[in-house]
Each structure stands twice: as structure tokens, then as C-alpha cells.
Amino acid sequence: MKACTVAVVGGGLAGLYAARALYASGIDVIVLEARDRLGGRILTADEAGMAAEDGFDLGPSWYWPQMQPPMETLIGELGLHSFAQNSEGAVVFERMSRETPQRYLPAMQEQQSMRLSGGTASVVRALAREIPVDRIHLDATVTAMALSDAGIELTVKRSQGSIGILQAEQVVAALPPRLLEATVSFSPEQDSATAARWRDTATWMAPHAKFFAIYDEPFWRTAGLSGTAQSMVGPLVEIHDATTASGKAALFGFPGVGADQRAALGEEMLKQACLAQLSRLFGSGALAPRAVLLKDWAADPLTATAADRVGGGHPLPGSSQWVSGLWKDRLILAGSETSPFEPGYLAGAVVAAGRAVADILSKMDSR
């Protein structure tokens, strides 16, 4: 049986932020990530859909410095570079299928959406560099947790099928509460109210998908368009310029059809319908992409549960009491959805992880 002081379950932004801070404080920490990559819902990919150091954000891509100072502070600490979401040019609005899409010039926004050079995964890479490689375990799925005299015993399943046990004094569960409740068994069981709260907390963006069309050049800008569009026709309901800081041109949009309808349509049919819509909105040049990508997060079992196939609202800040009873002193939830500030967003992950670290260090001091 292996042992550590703190086990962090989940290698996304929250998990890596917590592990980095704990390691810097001299705590023996191990990160367990079920995927074969770090990042969780953060995924920056190339035009083939493979994780890349300079690509397109199939997960979250924006942050707002004035509204989300914790994220701005972290980006500064890591020495990362940001750039503004393109907003120069007209916005296109598609009201009805039998009407020509309309163009208008929007008022300047006070809160500018910002993106990261190299994609949002640049945060993941920067955090991971400050954690020893042997402290991060990929393809390590936690399937069970059991309280013991010394803390918590975690059952860890590897991709090859092998099973191992990790003993930790404290566990930071840095994943969505709903996913935790659905995929990990507890001994003793969580009390019914706690389990219900986890189950009822929607995982932000889990019901949704993102479609990308990648081009040789951002032809819409030449036509005086920003790349931003809204549609009441679909299949995409919201579209934006996804061109990277290095100049790789792309448009992306959120399909407005639900997860079950996307599955019924099939990936290829949905992609063709999205391209046809981009042609209506931005011109015939949209029909000749270099590549197209579709990331359906509802079909990702390491993000979404069956309950996430029905769209839910944005998680709202609530009570900080995410764990109760016998588990209260050993288990801490740190997924973004548990944050009292901007839950679900990147900034929420930073805040939730910071609170978990402060809690653990306080407990260590008291002991």
C-alpha cells in the first residue's frame, strides 16, 4: 500500500492549483487523474483534435480580468500572456430561417473577454511544471474511498485493469460534485443530504458541445465581421472568432440542440449543418475549412453523468458545507462548482482549490 499526506483526485485546474500550493508548503501530495492527460475540462487541441501546446480551446477559453481577479492573479504569477477576444467588426444576428441575417455594430464592452496565448491549457502546463513528475499519476481512476484510522484509503484503478490502494491523511476531491457522487463509492456512505446536494449540483458545460471550423485565414475579418453571431435558427446558437494568438484562423460555436438530439443526428450530419449555417452567416468561404472539430462534453464519461444530458442552469454559490458527518475532517471538495465565487468558471476552480489548501494547512498546524 502506498501512502501520502494528501491525495488530490482530479488533475484539472483546481487539482493542479491545490497540488502546487501543497507541494510548495512542504506537504507530501499525490495527484490522481483518470484521463491520460492533465487539464480535465480544459483541452487545447490541434486541428486533428489532439492535445497541443498551441491550438483551439475545446473547453473553457475566456476569463474576465476585472470580474475574476483570482484568475488574473494566477496568470500573472505564472508569467503567461493573454490577448483580447476579437470584437472588431459587425455582429451577425439570425432571427428567422426565412429572413436574411442582419449585421450590426455592437457597443464597446466594459468587461473584455480575454484568452491565453497557447490556449487555456498553458495554465495547466505551467502549474504541472511546478509539481514533481512522480507526484502526478495519469490513467488513475479513483473508484472507492474508505475511512480508516489513519485517514482515507483510496481504491485506484489503472487503465490496464490493475487495482491499487493509496492511503492518505486528507483527500481533496477536485472534480465536479455530481461526477464524484456518480463514480466513487464511499464506506461509510455519505449521508443522504450530502449525496443529494452533490447529485443536484449541475456540472457547468457538461451538457454542451463546441464546434470548430478551422481556416487558412480569418476571411470574415476582411469582410468587416467580428466572427461573433447569434442565431435563433441554429444549429449553432452562439458563434465567436476562435483565431489563436499565433494566427491560426477558426470560428467556433455552441450547438443549441440537446445531447440526445446531437446523438440522434450523428456527428457528421451535425458538422455539415454547422458549416451550412456558417456559410449563411459569414459567406461561402465558410464551406471550405481546413478541418472541423466537434467536442461533445455530454458524451465524455469523465466529465458528464446521465443527469447532465439534460441542460442545467449555472451553478449558484451556496453553503460552504459540502462534506458532513464522519467524512468532514478528512475529505474536502474543491471542484469549481463548489466555489463561493464564480462557481463553474476557471476563477471558481482557483478559489475552491485555494480554500481547500488553506483548510488543509490549518488542520496540519492544529495537529
Rank of each mutant, 00 (worst) to 15 (best):
A209Q: 03
S61G: 12
D359G: 00
G11A: 08
I163A: 05
D139S: 13
R355T: 09
A250N: 02
T203N: 04
D46E: 06
A182I: 07
P207W: 04
F219P: 00
A51P: 15
P343G: 03
T194Y: 05
V31T: 11
S117G: 09
A14V: 03
Q272C: 08
D216T: 04
R129Y: 03
L32T: 14
M364T: 12
T155D: 10
A174R: 01
F93L: 09
R125A: 13
I136E: 04
L16W: 10
Y63D: 04
E337T: 02
A168P: 09
L293N: 05
A193H: 10
Q111W: 10
Q111T: 14
P315D: 00
L105C: 02
T155I: 07
A245C: 04
E33D: 11
G325I: 12
R103D: 10
F186D: 02
T155P: 02
R290I: 09
T183E: 08
L225N: 07
S231I: 06
W204Y: 15
K157M: 13
Q160R: 13
D216W: 00
Y215S: 10
A146L: 07
G151H: 04
A353C: 11
L302F: 13
V292D: 08
Q85N: 08
K363Q: 14
E337W: 01
V91Y: 07
E47C: 01
E88W: 08
E268Q: 14
R178A: 12
Q102Y: 08
R355I: 14
S246W: 04
V142D: 01
E88D: 14
Q261I: 15
G55F: 04
Q167Y: 00
V92N: 00
T155G: 14
Q68F: 06
Q230K: 10
G151W: 02
S97H: 11
M1F: 10
A356I: 12
R98C: 09
P207M: 06
L127A: 10
Y345D: 05
M269A: 15
I42G: 01
